[in-house]
Design a protein around this nucleic acid. Structure first.
Length: 472
RNA sequence: GCGGCGGUAGCGCAAUGGUAGCGCCCCAGCUUCCCAAGCUGGUUGUUGCGGGUUCGAGUCCCGUCCGCCGCUCCA
């Protein structure tokens, strides 16, 4: 009987859960929307991806340094960034024609002009429309004219709000950061000074961000809690075009050459017109060909001096945020080009890209063709059988390697079964101790993708071989 | 938020309102000794959760949560 055709997202979701990459959180209580936990293999891979990013951004570039800022910032940060103002107005939807209106516009332009409706009683605390008021049903939709089709006003701010202090509704309201970028902007003068940086320079950060998305979905692609890998590059005004070109090339090369994502599944998408955010003068997304379509997992944006200007205004610290160039004797607000990648989205793209099914001697095989640098387990270490002293040698090899490599010891079942288990985990190499090892101290190294065992290094050379493979 | 569909073992799935099962995986042993072979045995479920109808509910009804698809949204 032929297997039911499955789409790749279902296959990856099932494999991720089955093998301990990613699973729904708190499942014994039914789970909670859009929250996922990373299992033993998933966390190793996520950390390796984050470490590779850090290597390519911070360690590779002398003029880029890292920080790790708090998740809760001073609430004014979000006023300055536009996150509070942009989205505090409650919105009203028309259930008939699906049009959406701001509550205050509705009052000003529609309610006030209708006979028989007194604006005042419709408002609660002079703030919001009272949807339970009998007159609410008389308001026609400004778009299609239908009466009684308007939803109650709902707040659409995407930021998670909480409060400082243990007592509810006391203390100051604060927000969980919806992006990590602002943490870099507000720290920039301090970092620039202590690290003695001159534009162009960058500040990098990996951390969690939170957005109360209306529609999360597609596994770990859009979740309300997610992890960003961001680098904000501070540059002299006028150099943004060449900077954009540089980082576009760098970032694409990272996903393609360092992480091993297939070139045909990657592309740039330029933001134009309405797509362009209010803060951006030019913007490109790096998109992956997901099963649900091409979609973004990293953005390279030219943000001008919009953010620093806003923070200068709202903090009153214009001078602190300016950079003074000793050479030209000029003082200016740097322009910013950001590279902002979704760690979870990047991971999803890599998992999808690595998934493969092939045929080994008439048997179906599921294999994750992960780059060795990203594979959760670098090498499996197996005794060919459980007898003849082979397990002892294998365990010794495992002991010798485990502090420097992610190695995994397994002696259960036949050798083929153990190879296949590692194939699904994406393990690139499997080292097997066999009877010849007893004679000449050599072992086989089985390649995940070719199934070949091209060489037999001596036991004490295995570490060198693995190091070379991880580099290459 | 709206509409449609779904949720049964780790995974994939069965089960007229009448004893919750199958395959794979997993574990132990035997066997084999380089690619999920075979044999024997074994673990695993409050059928998402909570109510209701019924002598009896995985199955019917209500609510709720979670997921998928479409719409909306994604500053």
């Amino acid at each position: 009987m032929a297997a039911k055709p499955k789409n790749k997202m279902d296959l990856i979701t099932a494999l991720a859960k089955r093998r301990g990459f990613v699973m729904p959180t708190s499942e014994i209580y039914g789970g909670i929307g859009s929250s996922y936990d990373y299992g033993p293999l998933g966390i190793e891979m996520k950390r390796k991806l984050a470490d590779l990013w850090w290597r390519e951004m911070v360690r590779k570039h002398e003029n880029i340094v890292g920080i790790d800022s708090a998740i809760i910032y001073h609430p004014k940060t979000w006023v300055a960034s536009g996150h509070v103002d942009g989205f505090t107005d409650p919105l009203v939807d028309c259930k008939q024609c699906k049009a959406r209106f701001r509550e205050d516009e509705l009052v000003d332009r529609v309610v006030a002009g209708i006979k028989g409706i007194d604006e005042k009683p419709l408002k609660e605390n002079d703030q919001h429309l009272d949807a339970d008021h009998p007159s609410y049903a008389l308001i026609p939709c400004p778009n299609c004219g239908t009466k009684g089709s308007l939803t109650p006003p709902r707040s659409f701010n995407l930021m998670f709000k909480t409060h400082i202090g243990p007592v509810e509704d006391s203390g100051d309201a604060v927000y969980l950061r919806p992006e990590t970028a602002q943490g870099i902007y507000v720290d920039y003068p301090q970092v620039q000074t202590t690290a003695r940086l001159k534009p162009p320079f960058g500040i990098a950060q990996i951390g969690k961000a939170f957005r109360n998305e209306i529609t999360p979905g597609n596994f770990i692609f859009r979740t309300r809690e997610f992890e960003q890998m961001e680098m904000q590059y501070f540059i002299p005004p006028g150099t943004e075009n060449e900077t954009m070109d540089f980082w576009k090339t760098e970032r694409m090369a990272f996903w393609r050459d360092v992480c091993g994502i297939k070139e045909e599944n990657l592309r740039f998408h330029q933001h134009t017109g309405d797509e362009l955010a209010h803060y951006a003068s030019d913007a490109y997304d790096i998109e992956y060909n997901f099963p649900f379509g091409w979609d973004e997992f990293e953005g390279i944006h030219s943000r001008t001096d919009y953010d620093l200007k806003r923070h200068a205004e709202h903090s009153g610290k214009q001078k602190d945020l300016e950079y003074f160039d000793d050479q030209t004797r000029e003082r200016y607000l740097p322009y910013i080009v950001e590279t902002s990648a979704g760690l979870n989205r990047g991971l999803l793209a890599i998992l999808l890209d690595a998934y493969d099914e092939d045929d080994v001697d008439g048997n179906d095989r599921v294999v994750m063709r992960l780059d060795p640098k990203l594979a959760p387990i670098t090498a499996g270490i197996f005794p060919l059988t459980k007898k003849d002293g082979l397990p002892e040698i294998a365990r010794k090899l495992h002991e010798d390697l485990k502090l420097d490599f992610d190695v995994f010891y397994d002696e259960a079942g036949n050798i083929g079964r153990r190879y296949r288990r590692q194939d699904e985990a994406g393990t690139p190499f499997c080292i097997t101790i066999d009877h010849q090892t007893l004679e000449d101290q050599t072992v086989t190294i089985r390649d995940r993708d070719t199934l070949d065992q091209p060489e037999r290094p001596k036991l004490d050379q295995v570490a060198n071989v693995l190091s070379a493979r991880l580099r290459g």
